[in-house]
């Protein structure tokens, strides 16, 4: 391993980390603006032009708030909870392919931190680890509401992970690989997986809403029943970490959805663009397209949040176990049969 490789990866990691933090930061602003415009309001517009400095003001507020650790809480786990939540949210970006290799200064640099051959499984592993942050925080608070919320989050994530995994299996039957990079490369031009797997995508998307604890599946932080949910006892930047982790999760699952189903950095007419822009700028343009898709998904997350009321807990479980899992299994069977027929003839 030469040092140039280490430096190159280090720069890539730093850039991706920075970008995902900035996007998460501005997601909080975008969420408030989207909410406001969907409700015929203006939203934050005081800090800077159009309120674009609002995330900074919020950050400063979070840091300045008094930090309270309840005396009856488990101190170590209470502090570990938000840290774990943020960590698990951030490491998901490592296997996402952000673009095809770029030629910079005579060197071809892949725009992916690591192309492991089980990328999809890695994403699933990281996402299911994320619930530990919520679980530990809720338990360590020594508050019945927090614990209830943590249990809700855990059971919700487990239920929806099954349907999510099953919906992915149908995709893997088609692509024959677990590497995200290869899955994206197979969708060259217009051959996006969503066109072949619309039902699979729908199931996957509903499950990502549940996995990120977003409305209409935001039962773990359901104020009317649970005060603040698992972060009831949290204050200051530890609360900020939990809220931030939610937005980073949203960013990562948007990226995964865009990469798995919506072609990632592929777009129609990319071959002629590659000739026109050259080996340096064409991949970067593809990356910009990818980020456009991610932003569209983030907007979709917010749009759904301000439209659909929260599900009741029994409805949530019914939808997961009796609706999505049978659908996902049916999707696998249909996909398998169709692939078998195509291969036969």
């Amino acid at each position: 391993m030469d040092s140039a490789f280490v430096i190159e990866k280090f720069i890539l990691v730093a850039v991706i980390f920075g970008i995902s933090l900035v996007i998460a930061m501005y997601s909080t602003y975008a969420e408030r603006k989207v909410a406001a415009y969907l409700q015929d309001r203006l939203g934050p517009d005081r800090a800077g032009p159009f309120g674009i400095l609002q995330p900074l003001a919020d950050g400063v507020k979070m840091f300045m708030k008094e930090e309270i650790i309840p005396t009856s809480s488990n101190r170590f786990l209470f502090i570990a909870g938000p840290g774990l939540a943020l960590l698990c949210a951030c490491i998901g970006t490592a296997v996402i392919p952000w673009g095809s290799p770029v030629l910079i200064a005579g060197k071809t640099i892949p725009l992916q931190v690591s192309d492991i051959n089980v990328g999809v499984l890695y994403i699933f592993g990281v996402v299911s680890l994320g619930v530990y942050g919520v679980m530990i925080g809720g338990w360590a608070s020594n508050n019945k509401y927090s614990l209830l919320s943590a249990i809700r989050a855990a059971s919700q994530n487990i239920s929806y992970e099954i349907a999510m995994g099953l919906s992915i299996i149908a995709l893997l039957l088609m692509t024959n690989t677990l590497s995200l990079k290869e899955i994206v490369d197979q969708q060259h031009g217009w051959r996006w997986n969503v066109l072949y797997q619309p039902l699979g995508f729908l199931i996957f998307m509903v499950c990502s809403f549940a996995e990120t604890n977003r409305a209409p599946f935001d039962l773990p932080e359901c104020e009317t029943e649970l005060i603040g949910g698992y972060h009831t006892e949290y204050s200051s930047m530890k609360l900020g970490f939990y809220l931030f982790a939610e937005y980073i999760n949203m960013f990562v699952s948007s990226a995964v959805m865009a990469a798995l189903y919506w072609g990632g950095y592929n777009y129609p007419g990319m071959d002629s663009m590659a000739v026109w822009l050259g080996p340096t700028w064409a991949p970067l343009f593809g990356t910009a397209v990818f980020f456009g898709k991610i932003c569209a998904f983030i907007f979709f997350f917010m749009w759904v949040r301000w439209t659909i009321p929260r599900f009741r807990y029994d409805q949530l479980m019914n939808l997961g176990w009796k609706g999505l899992i049978p659908l996902a299994i049916a999707n696998i069977i249909i996909t398998g049969v169709v692939i078998a027929i195509i291969e036969k003839f």
Partner: peptide, 25 residues
């Protein structure tokens, strides 16, 4: 299936994106 009702609701909310906001600065 929830989906038809959800689509209808989403249509209503997106139409508000293009309405004039009632706020006075």
């Amino acid at each position: 299936m929830y989906l038809p009702a959800i689509a209808k609701g989403m249509g209503i909310t997106i139409s508000h994106l293009f309405k004039k906001e009632a706020t006075i600065r």
